[in-house]
Amino acid sequence: MNQFGNMLRRERKEQNLTLGDLAKKVGISVPYLSQIETGTKPLQDKLVERFVTELGLIGDDANALRRAAAVSMGEYSIRMEEGASNDDRILASMLAAGFARLPRDKKDQLREIMKDTNRG
């Protein structure tokens, strides 16, 4: 089980929702929700906000679930150098998860930062 799955299951149970209840609210199948909670299926980025909305999470609770999603999604796709901190992994995962939504100018800035970083 991954961090996101743990948090999602805990929140679902605190709200007395069954797998079926939450799956229906979010618009996914019960088996798929179960696989997300157990970490056997990767989480799709588009589902994170649906979980936040349907669970009525706001503020710190919503952000904690988003951070857990970023970490969990990174477990499937982000490879980092040895010695990377957990904060580094969270930031890299968040960047990867939201990269397609970044405006062109921000992507250009990141590209220049990475060019400078990789030179030194």
Results as ranks from 00 to 15, higher is better:
F4D: 10
G5Y: 08
G5R: 13
G5C: 01
G5K: 09
G5V: 00
G5N: 13
L8V: 01
R10G: 04
E14F: 01
Q15L: 12
Q15A: 12
N16T: 13
N16K: 15
L17K: 10
D21N: 15
D21W: 05
A23F: 15
K24A: 15
K25M: 12
V26I: 14
I28V: 13
S29P: 12
S29C: 03
V30I: 14
S34T: 00
Q35F: 06
Q35N: 13
E37M: 10
E37S: 08
T38E: 14
G39A: 07
G39I: 00
T40W: 04
L43M: 08
L43T: 05
Q44L: 07
D45H: 04
K46V: 02
K46N: 15
E49L: 07
E49S: 09
R50A: 13
F51G: 04
V52L: 04
V52F: 15
E54N: 15
L55D: 06
L57P: 11
I58G: 09
I58D: 03
G59R: 08
G59S: 09
D60H: 02
N63P: 00
L65E: 08
L65W: 14
R66M: 06
R66A: 11
R66F: 09
A68E: 14
A69N: 03
A70Q: 03
A70V: 00
A70L: 03
V71H: 07
V71C: 06
S72M: 02
M73N: 10
M73S: 12
Y76M: 04
I78G: 11
I78L: 12
R79Q: 15
R79F: 00
R79Y: 14
R79S: 10
E81F: 01
E81G: 07
E82Y: 08
G83K: 04
A84D: 06
D87A: 05
R89W: 01
R89Y: 14
I90S: 02
L91T: 02
A92W: 14
G98Q: 10
A100F: 01
L102Y: 03
L102D: 01
L102H: 05
P103W: 02
R104N: 14
R104A: 08
D105P: 06
K107I: 00
D108A: 02
D108S: 01
D108C: 01
Q109G: 11
Q109T: 03
Q109H: 05
L110H: 06
L110C: 03
L110N: 08
R111A: 08
E112L: 11
I113C: 10
I113T: 08
I113M: 09
I113Y: 10
I113N: 02
K115M: 04
D116F: 03
T117H: 12
N118L: 00
N118D: 00
G120D: 06
G120T: 09
G120Q: 12
